Amino acid sequence: MKYLVLGIVMIGLSSFTIMTPEVKYTKVETVSTNMQTSPGEKLIAKSDCVGCHKLDKKLIGPSYLEIANKYPANEKTVSYLSDKIIKGGSGVWGTIPMGAHASMKKDEAKTIVQYIMSLKK
């Protein structure tokens, strides 16, 4: 009889336990944008340009926006700035020289400059 009462009490007590709701985890999908990275942006990202230049803030050198707004958007500017990237230089933006990028191909430098000039406001 003692075991019967104990069994009934246990069943009764277990019916009052708090049931936690089942937690389901769902996979979060990343949102992709339709914005494409330009070839010039890709070349910049792979180079050491990001160590001295930013899109909209002066770092060691001028921002890309400052460069775009300083020069006219034409083929002469693209050629001039491409040569500056490859050969390096100083004096235009201050006393800190830009190092040469002698291993960069002329068409890569032009692609970078064309991207920078596309930022012109």
Rank of each mutant, 00 (worst) to 15 (best):
L59K: 10
T37K: 12
T26H: 11
S14L: 15
G7Q: 09
K57W: 02
V23F: 07
F16C: 04
E22D: 12
S38T: 15
Y64P: 05
T17S: 10
H53V: 02
H53C: 04
P62M: 03
D48E: 13
K24L: 05
G40M: 01
T30L: 14
I8E: 03
L43Q: 10
K24E: 08
K46S: 13
E29C: 04
L59V: 00
I67W: 02
E41M: 14
L65T: 08
P62C: 04
S15M: 14
C52A: 02
E41I: 03
A45L: 10
V31M: 10
K42M: 13
S63N: 02
K27R: 09
K54W: 04
G61I: 04
T37L: 12
D56M: 04
E29N: 09
V31C: 06
F16H: 05
I44H: 05
M35I: 15
G12P: 04
V50I: 08
K54L: 11
E66S: 05
T30R: 15
S38P: 05
P21I: 12
V5I: 14
C52D: 02
K46G: 12
V5T: 09
I60N: 00
V31H: 08
T17L: 13
K54A: 14
C49Q: 00
Y25H: 12
G40Q: 03
L65N: 07
I18R: 14
G40D: 02
L6R: 12
E41R: 08
A45I: 07
D48I: 07
C52H: 00
T30W: 10
I11D: 04
V28Y: 09
Q36N: 12
E66H: 01
K24D: 05
S14Y: 10
G7P: 01
K27C: 03
S15G: 09
K46T: 11
L55D: 06
V31L: 13
L55S: 06
Y25F: 14
E29F: 06
T33C: 09
E29L: 09
V5H: 05
Q36F: 08
C49M: 00
L6M: 14
P39C: 06
S47I: 04
S47H: 00
V28Q: 15
D56S: 10
L43I: 11
I18P: 01
E22A: 11
E29D: 11
V9C: 13
G40T: 03
V31Y: 10
I8S: 10
S14D: 07
I60M: 02
S47R: 01
S38N: 05
